[in-house]
Design a protein around this nucleic acid. Sequence first.
DNA 1: GTCCCTATACTCGGATAGCAAGTGTCCGAGTATAGGCGG
DNA 2: CCGCCTATACTCGGACACTTGCTATCCGAGTATAGGGAC
Lengths: 162, 162
Amino acid sequence: MKISEGVEWGIHCVTVLALVPPPTALPAGRLAEYHGVPPAYLAKHLQALSRAGIVESVAGPKGGYRLARPAREITMLEVVVAIDGSEPAFRCTEIRRRGPSAVGPEGYPLPCGIARAMWAAEDAWRAELAKRTIADLVMGIAVDADPVAVEKAVTWFGEVMR
Amino acid sequence: MKISEGVEWGIHCVTVLALVPPPTALPAGRLAEYHGVPPAYLAKHLQALSRAGIVESVAGPKGGYRLARPAREITMLEVVVAIDGSEPAFRCTEIRRRGPSAVGPEGYPLPCGIARAMWAAEDAWRAELAKRTIADLVMGIAVDADPVAVEKAVTWFGEVMR
DNA sequence: GTCCCTATACTCGGATAGCAAGTGTCCGAGTATAGGCGG
DNA sequence: CCGCCTATACTCGGACACTTGCTATCCGAGTATAGGGAC
C-alpha cells in the first residue's frame, strides 16, 4: 500500500494557497517552482482539486488557482480524496463465494467480516483526516516554521506578485 | 491508494488455518483450491506469513502450513503488515526543503506538520486493525456464515484430509 | 512380527516474466490583459 | 483626455509516452513418508 506522491504535493499547495490573500490567484507554474516539483505533473493534480471544488481556477494573465472556500472549511480528507480517489483501499473480491464451499448469492446477505473490519479501519483513518483542516495546518506552520524560511517565502511571494 | 489483493487472501488463509486442529497442516495448494485463487501466487504470500512468524511450514508429505501461534494472539494488523510491508503509506519527500524558501537542514527540527497528520491517521488505521484478532474473525464467521456453506466446507476438509 | 533402509513423492522456497496503475510530459482551447487607435 | 477595439501572451484543460511495483508463474532444494527387505 502506498499513497500517491501527488497527495503530498496537493496538500502543500492548498496550504500555500491558504496564505494568499484573496482575490489573488497563484499560477500552477509558480506553485511548482516554489515546491521544486515538475510543473506539468503538479498541474494534473491541481486540476483534480479544481474538479473537486476545493480550489477554483482563474484563466488568463494574472490568473491561476485560489481556494474556493475558507481554509477553515477544507479538511485534509477532502484534499486526499480529491487526488487519490474515493474508492476504498481494500477491495473485497468475495473469494468466499468461490471454491468448494460456495452456496449461491442468497447465502451471503452480509459483507464479508474481513472486509467489514478492513473498512472499519479505513473509516478510522478518514475520521482522523477529517478532523484536521487546512487552517490547522497553517497554524502549525506558523508555530513550527523557521523564521528565516518564512521571510524568504514572503520575499519570494512579493517578487512573484510584482 | 490501494491494498494488495494478497492481503485479502492472506487473512482468509489464516482464518481457515485457525479452524484446522493442530498439529495438522494444510498445503498451499489446498488453500488455493479452497479459495479459487492461483496456487503459485498464493504460495508467495504464505511464504511472507511464514517469514513473519505468523504461520509455520511443515515440509514433506502430510506437510503444509499451520498457525505458529493461537488465533487469539494473532492480530489482523500483523497479517496485513506481513504481506503489505511495514513502511508507511504516506512518505514525506520533504518538499518544504526545496524551492526558494529552503534554509538548510538545521531549520527543520521537527517532521513536516502535514506528514505528522498523515501518519497520525495511519496510526488510527493500525490501531483499529490491531484490535481485531483472527479469533474474532473466526467467531464472526461462526455467527454469519450460511449453515450449508459451513457443511460443505467441513465435507471438503474431510475429503482433503482423508 | 519387528526393525531398518532406501526410494519416492510431496512439500516449501526463491528466482524469473507480464501487466496495470501511477508518473511525467506535451500541446491545444479559452480568456483577461495591455497597448494602440479613433473620437 | 477618454473610451473602444484588437492583438497578445498567459492561463488552464485534457490527451499521450514511460517507469515502478503488483500480479502471476515456474523450477529446484529439502524432507517426512511409505513400502520393501532383512533379521
